[in-house]
Design a protein around this nucleic acid. Structure first.
Length: 861
RNA sequence: GCGAAAGUGGCGGAACUGGCAGACGCGCCGGACUUAGGAUCCGGUGGCCGAAAGGCCGUGGGGGUUCGACUCCCCCCUUUCGCACCA
């Protein structure tokens, strides 16, 4: 043996494959992660966004589950009653497409994928309460989608509406606004077109204001996500203003209403613009002799929807030949149809103020409509306004000109006064407009929840009574991938009897958007087997809301806004008191390989099972947690994984080497024995590490720095053992010369404390290996119940501190002094230090600052 | 165009409230042990000058505040993300 080293001649075997199988089996057998409500313990609901069972989970997917598992295991050790469930977002289009392609049934495909992926997660050692597993494609689950739909119908939160909807020609189905990304289908990327369809809609706008207000302050959510939600809801305050139609040809409707946020500019309104979809435009197009009108209208309506939405298409319009009276000026203005006016926003009609709106300016320039300036930045601009032609619209602050009795008012005051005036006169109304639209949930596909209504010739639309639920999805259907809903092609399903009159009736053949399934599954986990209700309010009362929720940022709007909506619906049904379902939200970064997002289609996926075979699940988990903060994307490297494996093997060897020394009973606690300097230093490091790792995990969730803290402790332990003669391999402490019995007891005591703290704190990251080590250290009860190590502030406090001394901002020396040395003394020592003195030579000391007792700063000139 | 976040060694990343920049790991270099070692243990590793002691420079660029700035303020550059004719 060489002195000064811990040389382990025989490398003890760290065989993750054996250890991991053993503990996964034990956890299963002991139902280690199953929980029930326990009012005596604080609860913690830890959830990762459940999975779409696409087939095989790759490392990019499982990163999320690993993050959640570290949090869940840590909280469990810290004494919380932890609910950590998992399930499957199992309805959806890929199953149907796979069915078409492979001539199988979506259910078969889905259930096989679930079985495989469940195995993958179990091999990673995620501590799920598997007895609560749910799959949304099973009647036990979608029954309650239907139940909730009926409740929403009763409360007028669900309604049927004929409108232009987003249509994905590839998926052959409708998409919600949230599901159109840059004009393309969120799932397949095909350019979305428009169709006019009658479909079921959920009134999310009922909660628009509340969703927006709460999104201003959800302290546990990333600011980025909140901003996205606020923008999506898009509140604007303004006014609706009525313009009287004066044309002889005017339809029976004698007025049209515009929405504006800038009523102060209304004296500059020189025309009115209607969306091609506006009802008046439709009505006029149907009048005799309106062929040309109709042709233009149709042309605009057929224009690419996203082009119109994003401004890529040139602004175009045509004169309707009608005029309307500006209610403020009483002057007639022409009414035009314009392709850039959106039918579904506001009233589908706007006033054209070319002087103060760039879009109107361009339109007016193109069609030579008058431009009248009514807001001036200052006096000079006001004077110049009449003579200088504008080159662009002015939308800055200023005072009104040429606006009758409102002339001279500042913009904000004018908006206020003019809105009030319009209300008083009865031609206007202050109003709040949202960008958020009600959520269309009808999908013309098979693999989803049947919408529980029937259509009867006599009674019209009739909801299926709750006691007849669930409306089962029939097993057999044609999956041609063409035409209308596959359900429409199954007569046995379609033809039914009316619940009211018992006459013949047809079932609704559309299914629900799968985002309905995922909007409330977190409540179902609290009571997954309930056959009477979606969940027992008491159980959700105990577990809810979700304390820690993690998943991809791609759901920042879709899933996360729908869930906030549904939580409020359940609340208003009296079933919960929860408004915000997710207290803390972590959006995990993606995993890249070769600079690209890991995905099956790119062929760059890393299968966790391959990594587990080589290095074990613990090494995989540790690597993914260590390589970067959880929110950041990471670039996969094999060498990084190997490094984590090496670290675990290093811990294994250390504990294996020490377990006979520090394992078992009868070892005194460190504060019961006398400690030498080295022992006190190790103890200090131990407690400092506990403090750091604990706060890094909770509440910070800085998993990467928590791991690095543990690595430092391991390095310290190796160094300590290397310096300690009695710890050379092959020499049991009993065989050590007896010149330091007390010292040896201290060594054993501090080592035991350090090693046990290390193993326990490592266990959320590497649960299998640490269970095994914990057992090797002589513990009978699992590490899961061992508790989290406590740290002692007193012990962690340094006895000696190093104080850097700066001269003009540069560190010139370091003083080693007793902790708590008085500031005056520090000043003396600093100035007297030879290195410092060198830099003070020939100069005048102007000031000596002692900052918080941690640093001395000397200013010279 | 608007909004947000970010920019630190060869690489991933630390630095929590303005107080020792580069923790920890990867990679690389050296040593020990060895028949051998891609294992293991120990050490080194921002750049430049220097044998060393030490010195100078250094957190995208430029300015500012401060005894002291990766951190705060102003301007600019770059990247990523989100929104994008919403009247």
């Amino acid at each position: 043996m060489r002195s000064g080293t811990l040389y382990l001649g025989i490398v003890p075997d760290y065989k993750p494959q054996i250890v991991e199988g053993k503990w996964q089996q034990r956890w299963r057998d002991s139902r280690a992660f199953e929980v029930s409500e326990d009012p005596d313990k604080p609860k913690f609901y830890c959830l990762e966004m459940f999975a779409y069972p696409s087939g095989h989970a790759h490392v990019g997917h499982v990163r999320n589950y690993m993050i959640g598992d570290v949090v869940a295991r840590m909280k469990r050790m810290r004494g919380f009653n932890v609910l950590h469930p998992f399930g499957w977002d199992a309805f959806g289009l890929p199953a149907e497409n796979a069915a078409i392609k492979n001539n199988t049934h979506p259910e078969t495909w889905t259930l096989e994928n679930i079985a495989h992926m469940k195995g993958q997660l179990q091999r990673i050692g995620i501590s799920y309460a598997w007895e609560r597993e749910i799959a949304t494609c099973l009647p036990e689950y979608y029954h309650w989608n239907q139940w909730l739909f009926l409740k929403m119908l009763e409360r007028d939160l669900a309604y049927r509406k004929r409108s232009n909807v987003n249509w994905c020609p590839s998926c052959n189905t409708v998409l919600a606004n949230e599901q159109v990304i840059d004009g393309a289908c969120w799932r397949c990327g095909t350019t979305v077109t428009t169709r006019e369809l009658e479909q079921w809609v959920l009134r999310i706008t009922h909660y628009a204001d509340e969703l927006l207000e709460s999104a201003k302050d959800l302290p546990g959510w990333p600011e980025k996500v909140l901003t996205m939600q606020r923008n999506w809801i898009g509140r604007s305050e303004g006014a609706r203003v009525k313009f009287q139609l004066v044309s002889e040809l005017a339809s029976p409707e004698q007025e049209l209403e515009v929405f504006t946020t800038r009523i102060d500019t209304i004296f500059g309104a020189t025309f009115v613009l209607l969306a091609p979809e506006h009802p008046l435009v439709q009505a006029w197009s149907e009048l005799p002799g309106a062929e040309a009108f109709r042709r233009d209208m149709e042309r605009f309506r057929a224009q690419d929807r996203t082009g119109r939405m994003t401004g890529e298409i040139e602004k175009e319009g045509f004169d309707t030949g009608r005029t309307a009276l500006n209610p403020f000026t009483k002057q007639p203005v022409p009414v035009w149809v314009a392709n850039f006016v959106l039918g579904e926003y506001g009233t589908g009609a706007v006033m054209g103020v070319p002087a103060h709106d760039q879009r109107d300016f361009e339109f007016a320039t193109k069609y030579q409509l008058p431009i009248v300036r009514v807001v001036a930045a200052d006096e000079a601009a006001s004077a110049a306004a009449d003579v200088t032609p504008m080159t662009e619209a002015y939308d800055g602050p200023g005072k009104l000109v040429g606006s009758g009795e409102f002339t001279g008012l500042a913009v904000d005051a004018a908006i206020d006064r003019m809105s009030a005036f319009a209300e008083q006169q009865g031609f206007g109304q202050r109003t709040v407009q949202y960008r958020l639209k009600d959520w269309g949930i009808s999908r013309q596909r098979y693999w989803g929840t049947p919408i529980p209504v029937v259509y009867c010739d006599k009674c019209g639309m009739v909801p299926v009574p709750s006691d007849s639920l669930p409306v089962l999805l029939p097993k057999v259907a044609e999956f041609s991938g063409r035409g209308d809903s596959p359900l429409a092609q199954i007569p046995e399903f379609v033809n039914t009897t009316c619940p009211d009159c018992e006459g013949p009736a047809r079932r609704e053949t559309d299914t629900m958007d799968t985002f309905v399934d995922s909007s409330w599954y977190f409540f179902r986990f609290c009571d997954p087997q309930n056959t009477e209700l979606p969940f027992d309010p008491d159980k959700v009362g105990y577990w809810g809301p979700v304390d820690f929720y993690s998943g991809g940022v791609e759901h920042a709007i879709l899933h996360l806004i729908y869930s906030r909506f549904f939580a409020r619906v359940f609340r208003d049904l009296g079933m919960t008191t929860i408004s915000e379902p997710f207290t803390r939200l972590l959006t995990q970064g993606m995993v890249l390989k070769d600079g690209q997002v890991m995905s099956k289609s790119k062929g760059n996926v890393v299968d966790p099972d391959d990594m587990i075979r080589q290095f074990g699940a613990d090494a995989l988990r540790l690597y993914v947690m260590f390589v970067a903060p959880p929110e950041k994307e990471i670039e996969w490297t094999d060498s990084g994984l190997e490094g984590s494996w090496r670290f675990l093997a290093r811990v294994w060897r250390l504990v294996d080497h020490l377990c006979e020394t520090v394992g078992g009973k009868g070892i005194p606690a460190p504060d019961e024995v006398e400690l030498n300097d080295a022992e006190r230093a190790l103890r200090r490091k131990t407690h400092d590490t506990i403090r750091r790792v604990t706060t890094d995990l909770d509440p910070r969730v800085h998993l990467n720095t928590a791991v690095s803290g543990l690595m430092e402790l391991v390095n310290e332990l190796y160094a300590f053992c290397g310096r300690t003669e009695c710890l050379k391999i092959g020499q049991h402490p009993d065989a050590i010369p007896a010149d330091g019995a007390v010292e040896r007891a201290g060594t054993i005591a501090v080592l035991k404390e350090a090693v046990e703290a290390l193993v326990r704190m490592l266990s959320p990251f590497a649960p299998h290996m640490t269970e095994e080590l914990w057992e090797m250290l002589g513990h009978v009860d699992g590490i899961v119940v061992s508790g989290w190590p406590a740290f002692d502030e007193e012990v962690a406090r340094l006895e000696e501190v190093v104080i850097p001394v700066q001269v003009n901002g540069k560190v010139r020396a370091r003083l080693t002094v007793a902790a708590g040395t008085a500031e005056d003394r520090l000043r003396e020592l600093a100035v007297a230090d030879p290195q410092v003195a060198k830099h003070l030579e020939g100069k005048t000391v102007k000031k000596v600052v002692v900052a918080g007792g941690r640093l001395v700063s000397i200013v010279v000139s």
